[in-house]
Design a protein around this nucleic acid. Structure first.
Lengths: 140, 140
DNA sequence: TGCGTAATTGCAATATTGTTGCATCTATCT
DNA sequence: AGATAGATGCAACAATATTGCAATTACGCA
């Protein structure tokens, strides 16, 4: 919810400015990842203007507060839809419709850590991005 | 091995040109991911010159042939050190020394697929990048 | 070994993406 | 409403990435 995100901003001492609300609103209503310049274009098409520098800074902040995520495989940003630990970053990206589903699984995470440790590696953050077909596109 | 990579190029009908050998050689001897411009800088420091466009094209080709990988979390490229299926892309990145270890685990892969399917998602490619400390840095 | 040709590279120009410092503006508290 | 810390816009710039085309080169073959 937009309202929750705004509250989260304020709770940590950040101002609920118009630009921040605009960016949050766009992210809320969009399922697929958006790049900073895409966000700017969407706003422009609606007669709003934000400087790209502002958008970059807002996205940095949102990621820092775990209100948004950067999807590395495409470089875009999506809203954070889970309130799990910040250390894990997991998505399934549908190759057909581009939709993204965030997921979390404690068990999988532990198995990954265990596997890594068996190779002598002590992990802190796990990033996973799976691509394939979502249930809807798979049915088609 | 450099020789193997060159052979792989030729086996698929690509020429073993000087620029390609240079890039492969740099990737072979470097443990950490390198960006196109870093590769150019390393070569320049050795008195060699490659146009950045050439480097981009070579890296595209190497990734396409699964002789190199792009590490998404940093944007750099490393040599491919496993001859596993091209669909999986897994690294552990040491936060201290920057070294990268590629890994593969069929079992983990299957569990990931199963987990995704339980959410209605049919995966094709799995990307994982774990960050933490390698055994050497963990000991320090 | 030298030639012909298709593949590859270099170059120039341009597009896209990301960053910095500073002046101006605004959300929030009183 | 006014003060002020924090946020935004602007301008300039840096870094990264892409395209079309001319020049060069690796490789097969005579």
């Amino acid at each position: 919810m937009l309202r929750d995100s705004i509250r989260a901003l304020q709770a940590q001492g950040y101002k609920a400015t118009k630009p921040r609300k605009l960016v949050l609103h766009i992210l809320e209503e969009t399922e697929r990842p958006l790049s900073p310049y895409e966000i700017q274009a969407i706003l422009r098409a609606r007669g709003k203007y934000l400087n790209h520098v502002t958008i970059y800074r807002i996205l940095d902040l949102l990621c820092h507060l775990n209100l948004a995520h950067k999807v590395l495989s495409c470089g875009g940003f999506i809203k954070c839809s889970l309130d799990t630990a910040a250390g894990c970053h997991r998505f399934m990206v549908c190759q057909d419709c581009g939709a993204i589903q965030e997921f979390a699984d404690e068990e999988l995470c532990q198995e990954e850590s265990g596997f890594a440790r068996s190779l002598g590696f002590h992990t802190e953050h796990h990033l996973s991005e799976f691509s394939g077909l979502c249930s809807r596109c798979y049915m088609k």
